[in-house]
Design a binder for these strands. Structure first.
Lengths: 356, 356
DNA sequence: ATGAAAGCGCTAACAC
DNA sequence: GTGTTAGCGCTTTCAT
């Protein structure tokens, strides 16, 4: 058969004209060798003649062949891809993603971010699904952001959880010191003279949310202040879930003079609602958030908040998965835990309470 | 064989205890049926007895089985996953990602973001590689953010490019009106009284960068101002690449009184360098950026910039890929192009030039 | 109603 | 050096 026999047509720019992806079979046929040989050449294995190799490489180039990650990962053990699993791409997870992306440079790994929690139906347990769908094949390891349940450590790939479901137990985790952060936030409000302080809590299933509420309670109690139970509500870390509790907090004559929200997104929503109600921030109401996402500094007024070291947390989580991937030590149920410090960032959403 | 024979061990909480992922074979074995039957049940196909189905489902639940995206996508046509391909996760691409993530809710698709440009070696052409690696199998369609080359439209999955390599030609694209935006930015500086205005350009391979420079030149020329060629440099949309040209702009006695940078990231770097040099922004130097990422509003001073409608752009791009995926019309080389309007956001990084 | 078998694109043993 | 073969986990005819 003539070499040009049934080789896929090649356009003027060297791109394949035939529809669909170029597969290893196309390359093999065009180069007149077996797929196995193409595979060897592409993967730089030994045992291929110089001349064959260069001919194959030429065809690869001509056809624009690139091996399918999917097919390859099904067969191979390693893919050099690390998964970042999130419920949804919102400011917190994307800040982490930026940090991980920066840290991944030069490591030889690529990043694949997957949002599996889209459907409201599986707001809980999405990480298990995502992990099962991708793990063991597509990705060598995973960083899971704010999982709703404890991630299984024994089955599948190495996993590190950021802002985990549960505290220092189970899989490897990275988080920041929510207790201290929440105390700082609350103490800041107290030092400004507030005594009637509300708390808009986070996701009840997350350790971080529980610790932030605890920090708030401790600071109040340490200052000799009693907590009005009707002022402690749950906003689920989300603006939409925060709407009703925020109104509950502000639609009343004896409303608090300050609110500590468990994250920036819900704090920002408190500011919004306050303004709809004709309350000025910070003159009539002080608001403190948590996280220090860029949106917090960008808001009007700029939000006072507790900064989590998101860059470091992302970098650390990446370091940890990579080390888990590369050490072949059997994974025990008990992972390593890193907790990083937080700090208060005073901006313009807090001030002394109205004279009244 | 007894049903309990070689079924994988199940732990107290129903989680699989054996290492590795639970595969369809495990389920089949545990349920005492064939893999084909399990597949049918899992995919809700007809032709399975009620009792068999419920038994299988029970085992699925018990073992926590979830089908592998990889294996499934290799065999099937559709995966209901849309890829967002970026060179790197930085503020611009992640804003788009947030927008697309918001828009994807309720569509039945899931999002997979892949950063393939990690290695500096392939700063150019990463999108071709990523597309080849994922396309045709893992993802049903792709949104590519700022591709470095023209994306092939004929081979593989439907593609929409945001801020494309080339203007309205080739694949479907979404971008914003860079020409008008750049004119607004420059006119704003001129109206403040600036005459010596520098331009820190973007990535030369992108249409948007060329249009922003053109808009700058048009506004200058319309105002009867001449452009000093030594004041028009390229920053490549990146802080690191902007460092040298920024110093070239500012380390001189006859430095400009204002700089229009082609995106916020490089504008922010100009502000940084200016401050290192002891220049106050905006008193000694005015700076305008482009994009309006959250970091722009969060900066000190808050950055005057040209806002791109990133939310709309992301939503529109998603709408377009989905419609391409769902219409089985053969893809022509010529896609649809949407160009959205920009607007000037005046903040505190611009002011009249120093009296001198 | 169920299962056996082929095959998606690829890699890894093993044969020639 | 190179090709043949098996098989990764899954879906899909096609027999039974």
């Amino acid at each position: 058969m003539t070499p040009s026999g049934d080789r896929p047509q090649v356009g003027p720019e060297g791109g394949a004209v035939r529809a669909g992806r170029v597969t290893i079979t196309d390359v093999a046929r065009a180069a007149g060798v077996s797929v196995a040989t193409v595979s060897k050449v592409v993967n730089g294995r030994y045992g291929v003649a110089q001349t064959t190799a260069s001919r194959v490489l030429e065809v690869v180039d001509q056809l624009g062949y690139e091996s399918s990650l999917v097919a390859r990962s099904l067969r191979r053990r390693r893919t050099n891809v690390i998964g970042v699993l999130v419920a949804e791409f919102e400011p917190f997870s994307t800040e982490l993603l930026k940090a991980i992306s920066k840290a991944v440079e030069g490591t030889g790994y690529e990043l694949l971010a997957y949002s599996g929690g889209g459907d409201t139906s599986d707001r809980v347990g999405w990480e298990r699904r995502s992990l099962s769908r991708l793990g063991g094949t597509l990705i060598d390891g995973a960083v899971i952001v704010t999982p709703t349940v404890q991630v299984p450590t024994d089955d599948g790939v190495p996993v590190v959880a950021i802002d985990p479901h549960t505290g220092p137990t189970g899989p490897a985790t990275v988080d920041s010191d929510s207790l201290a952060g929440a105390r700082m936030a609350t103490e800041h409000l107290i030092s400004l003279g507030h005594t009637r302080i509300g708390h808009l809590g986070g996701r009840r299933d997350l350790e971080s949310a529980r610790l932030r509420e605890l920090g708030y309670r401790q600071a109040m109690s340490d200052a000799g202040l009693t907590v009005d139970p009707s002022l402690v509500l749950t906003g689920g870390y989300r603006p939409d879930l925060s709407d009703r509790p925020t109104h509950e907090l502000l639609d009343r004559p004896d409303r608090p003079t300050a609110v500590f929200a468990a994250n920036d997104l819900s704090a920002l929503h408190v500011v919004e609602v306050a303004e709809e109600l004709g309350l000025r921030v910070p003159e009539d109401l002080s608001v403190v958030g948590y996280d220090d996402i860029p949106e917090a500094a960008a808001a009007r007024p700029p939000l006072t908040t507790v900064a989590q070291p998101l860059r470091e947390m992302g970098a650390e989580a990446l370091r940890m998965v990579i080390s888990l991937i590369e050490s072949d030590a059997p994974r025990t149920g008990q992972g390593h835990h890193t907790r990083l410090p937080t700090r208060l960032v005073e901006r313009a959403s807090t001030a002394p309470p109205p004279a009244s």
